[in-house]
Design a protein around this nucleic acid. Structure first.
Lengths: 365, 365
DNA sequence: CTGAAAGCGCTTACAG
DNA sequence: CTGAAAGCGCTTACAG
């Protein structure tokens, strides 16, 4: 065919090209190819011609042009931090859900990575520059001031935000209850001397788990022993370090019967140290985690933990973002924060059991 | 001169707005705010005025408009499969590198998920519709026909493609050599009866590992025993199942001294089964993996494995994609496939050791 | 049912 | 050094 101009070969076909090929205008082509009210608008015969032309020219709508005209990119932004350049398991679980739901709704997902929430907060407005229609913040720890940087014109949903994000949807889980249930479970199995390796004190998530731990103890009338509450970071390394330090400085004293770790990563670090000193889990002592990340299933023994529906939260985050985007277009968007709290769930695997028949000591090295 | 129309308040400021505010044209603003040759073009004093106006109006360039004019989105696409809706560890490691490098080069990353490479191949051209400048395929297993669907106008880089992608950069690792080294390492430690839990036969990656295994045996003059070569899938479940089946049908026979698993996930499944039947790793037998994913460090004992530089491959994929994008713009792009092979590396951790002093039998259950 | 017009916000030549 | 013009590919009113 003579329609193939030289320069066209290196350019994607446009609506104008399709229209020309089909002998109609570009907007006719637009209506049948990309338009919403496709069917009503165009005569069936014309419609067919346009479809064929598009097929022949391998027409693909240009996303940028459409976005410019539409003010809609069909893409969702996801912001998260890289700790030491490493995406953590928590993020990955959530992201899994986000990607899954985004795909289902024909949305793209673009990932923005920060190194530090507070320091990089100023980059947030830049993400909302037209390339995304909504923004999902994963586990942000932003101050009230930084939060105010978020522009109004892009709907936002936050997961496990350290403080609720104003005018946004805040998705959380019932961490206090999850911790309570887990510690109660340990108590019912006969444990009394239960240690808690907490997350960084001051972080909402960490505090809630500490509260659940203490409430469970007090509900069972077990006296809270401050030497059994040890602060760690939310990583494997931190868990290992905290546990190691504890063992060193407490050698010769009574070994805790169970250790409730503030997340799975800490539990894994903890397991590692215990294995080094020859203590067996769960026969010598029980170790349990929190989160139910993939890693909880790859430890040996598999980790008893508190399931946070991270994947489902990712899915939900997408759905609520989409809702807000729609509401914003319709002008019906609410300007108030909305908090959604999802339940946690106890997952009993193999890393816990009854306490050993007699008290064990912390080995000295 | 009603500068502040009502509708403007709910709209992001444009270059025209900034220009008006600064008393210059939109293109002047464009030049100083977004242009490349910024400094030379504008008088310092004008420049300052424009900058201030932009600041005042909180001007943010609109990505879609820029993309349309530029034909450049500053975003890279990443395509991968979800197996059973689950992103695997392999992907996550690579993705980590991709996101890291993309951030460094001020590129966005958008993720496209497929359920099955071959079935969803037809979706690939749709991704190249102007919203991405380059496409990275992670572990594609596409037929030659499907590969031909990839449009010419978007540069492509593939990682561990089952067959080299034509006209693209193909990043691989020296898997055969890695497998050879690992098995040789086991042989040097005294192992003779070495089992291989392979990946799906027919897949290039799986075959290369089998080849390395067999070459190492033959280099050490150990006769290849076909009953010790068992096919598994590349997942934990598959590894567990394959191992379980083997143990069942071989009960009472000699236990292998070492098991070389085709990836870490298989090794984890294998460890799980061994732990169930009460066999100790590495004292009763050694178990080693391949990949060095995060999971290799969370098993107990930590997994000895062959490190593939997955993260670095992600980084390299981004860099090479960017190179190709640039070359395409300059018209200097090569139309030939380019293969880059990265080295693997032995990582000795705690899941291997010398064979036990006497032969062990496979326990019957 | 269909097309001509205007506009989305930005750029890149091109004049002055 | 600076601005008027045209165009990127698509849409949404608006006429016919």
């Amino acid at each position: 065919m003579s329609t193939h101009l030289k320069k066209k070969s290196h350019r994607a076909a446009t609506l104008a090209d399709v229209g020309r090929e089909a002998g109609v205008s570009a907007m006719a082509a637009s209506a049948v190819l990309n338009g919403a009210r496709t069917s009503s608008r165009t005569a069936p015969e014309t419609r067919e011609r346009i479809l064929q032309a598009a097929e022949k020219l391998r027409y693909r709508p240009n996303a940028a042009a459409r976005a410019l005209a539409d003010r809609c990119m069909n893409t969702l932004g996801v912001a998260a931090v890289f700790i030491g350049n490493e995406l953590n398991q928590y993020f990955l679980e959530v992201f899994n859900g986000v990607v899954e739901a985004a795909a289902k709704h024909d949305q793209n997902t673009t990932v923005f990575t920060l190194h530090d929430w507070e320091k990089d907060a100023e980059r947030l407005p830049g993400f909302c520059d037209g390339r995304i229609d909504g923004l999902i913040l994963i586990g942000p720890t932003l101050s009230r001031e930084s939060l105010s940087l978020l522009p109004d014109h892009t709907p936002c949903v936050a997961l496990h935000s350290n403080i609720p994000v104003p005018k946004s949807v805040n998705l959380e889980t019932d961490e206090e209850h999850g911790a309570f249930e887990m510690v109660t479970h340990l108590i019912k199995a006969g444990h009394r001397r239960i240690m808690h390796l907490s997350g960084p004190r001051g972080l909402t998530g960490a505090e809630r788990r500490v509260e659940g731990y203490r409430r469970a103890l007090s509900a069972a009338r077990i006296k809270f022993d401050p030497t059994l509450l040890i602060e760690a970071g939310f990583s494997e390394d931190c868990g290992a370090r905290a546990m190691n330090d504890f063992m060193k400085r407490s050698s010769g004293r009574l070994l805790p019967q169970a250790i409730f770790c503030a997340n799975d990563a800490i539990a894994i670090g903890c397991l590692e140290i215990l294995s080094h000193v020859g203590l067996k889990v769960p026969t010598d002592l029980s170790v349990v985690g929190f989160d139910d990340t993939l890693a909880a299933r790859t430890t040996i023994p598999q980790l008893t933990t508190v399931r946070q529906p991270l994947r489902a939260m990712g899915v939900k985050a997408v759905e609520m973002t989409l809702e807000r985007i729609k509401a914003m277009r319709d002008g019906t968007i609410e300007r108030t924060a909305k908090n959604v709290i999802l339940p946690t769930q106890l997952v009993i695997r193999a890393s816990d059991g009854p306490p050993p028949p007699q008290d064990l000591m912390i080995p000295s090295r």
